[in-house]
């Protein structure tokens, strides 16, 4: 479930200016300035946010970049897990479809 409409072609983005990130070993504590909520991200969700801060991407694009970034293969991290994690991040507001995301 996502916060808004999306498709396989949707470009997702994370705005670094909206976030304060504090890495702690294999998790990161992320404060979302817009909502005032604090989130604890594991290495996968943190990597997705970091990659989408650098460059927007679709589910498929992000999955490929995550596997490379974390040195994992598709057996370890199936595309469905990346997609579901991105939708969780969408629910929190940490990432959003590019056409819906506000500018920094």
């Amino acid at each position: 479930m996502a916060a808004g409409p999306y498709s396989a072609d949707t470009l997702w983005v994370a705005h670094a200016a909206h976030l304060i990130v504090e890495p702690h070993e294999d998790v990161s504590v992320v404060f979302h300035k817009l909502s005032g909520d604090t989130h604890i991200l594991n290495f996968l969700s943190a990597a997705i946010v970091e990659l989408l801060e650098e460059q927007p991407g679709t589910f498929a694009e992000v999955t490929g970049r995550v596997l490379t970034y974390l040195e994992l293969d598709a057996d370890d991290c199936p595309p469905s897990l990346v997609e579901s994690t991105m939708l969780q991040l969408d629910d929190t507001g940490l990432i959003a479809p590019q056409n819906l995301a506000g500018s920094a």
Binding site: D26, G36, D37, T38, H39, I40, L41, N42, F43, L44, S45, L70, L72, D76, C77, P78, S80, L81, S84, T85, Q88, L89, D91, T92, L94
Partner: peptide, 21 residues
């Protein structure tokens, strides 16, 4: 350890924990 966590994620473990202020 990470693979184990990913397997748990694939099984439904949330990858994001929210602390709402």
């Amino acid at each position: 350890h990470r693979r184990q966590l990913l397997r748990m994620g694939a099984a439904g473990l949330p990858m994001v924990l929210t602390l709402r202020a």
